[in-house]
Simulated assay, not measured.
Amino acid sequence: MIGGGVAAFTGGLWTGAAVGGTVRKVIYLTEDETDGCFYRFRPNNWGDLCAGGLLEVLVAGE
């Protein structure tokens, strides 16, 4: 983790950064690509992220 709940990671299918907050119980993710997207994950169970949830994506201008 990098200061205050921000994580940078590389591997598998993803290279980017993530930040999560326990108040809103949402995780935000970015892709380290010039055409990368911005994601928001709303887990069904904050204590178990593998339990599924809603993944939303923001794609800026085409």
Rank of each mutant, 00 (worst) to 15 (best):
L13W: 13
G47T: 12
T10A: 15
I2P: 03
L29D: 02
T10C: 08
R24K: 14
G53Q: 04
A7Q: 10
T22S: 15
N44L: 06
P43E: 03
L29G: 01
L54V: 12
V57T: 14
V6F: 13
G11W: 02
G16D: 07
V57K: 09
C50T: 14
G21M: 08
G5I: 04
G3T: 12
L54S: 13
D32G: 13
F41Q: 01
G20V: 04
G47V: 02
G52E: 01
N44A: 10
T10K: 11
A8M: 08
D48S: 12
I27G: 00
L55H: 01
Y28Q: 04
G21C: 08
E31W: 01
R42W: 07
D35M: 07
I2Q: 15
C50V: 05
D35T: 10
G16C: 05
D48V: 11
A17R: 06
R42T: 15
D32P: 02
T10I: 02
E31C: 03
L13T: 06
G4V: 06
V26E: 13
E31A: 01
T34N: 06
L54N: 10
Y39H: 05
G11I: 00
C50Q: 10
F41S: 00
A7E: 14
C50H: 09
K25R: 15
V19P: 00
G47M: 02
Y28W: 11
G4S: 15
T30L: 03
M1N: 10
G36W: 05
C50R: 14
A8T: 09
T10Q: 12
F41K: 02
F9L: 09
F38A: 07
D32C: 05
V19Y: 12
V6H: 11
A17H: 02
F41G: 00
A17S: 06
V59N: 07
I2H: 09
T34H: 06
L49N: 02
